[in-house]
């Protein structure tokens, strides 16, 4: 029972550990820098900031 619970606890630790490794990678890779630029990556010339891209359909 104790060994099994430690196994389960280890699984929880491992999941958090994988997140920690990914976090370190993101910091080293510059993902935390220039947040403004990161927030704008979903916009482009065709769909720039300021352009809504959804509305209820209307009959023309």
């Amino acid at each position: 029972m104790t060994a099994e619970l430690i196994l389960i606890f280890g699984g929880m630790l491992a999941l958090s550990g994988s997140a920690f490794v990914a976090f370190c990678w993101s910091v080293c890779n510059g993902q935390m820098a220039r947040p403004r630029e990161a927030a704008l990556t979903i916009f482009d010339d065709d769909e720039p900031v300021g352009l809504p891209t959804d509305r209820f359909p209307s009959r023309k």
């Binding site: 769909e47 900031v49 300021g50 809504p52």
Partner: peptide, 8 residues
Amino acid sequence: PKVLGRPI
């Protein structure tokens, strides 16, 4: 953000 056209 995409629907509104404004960043997060």
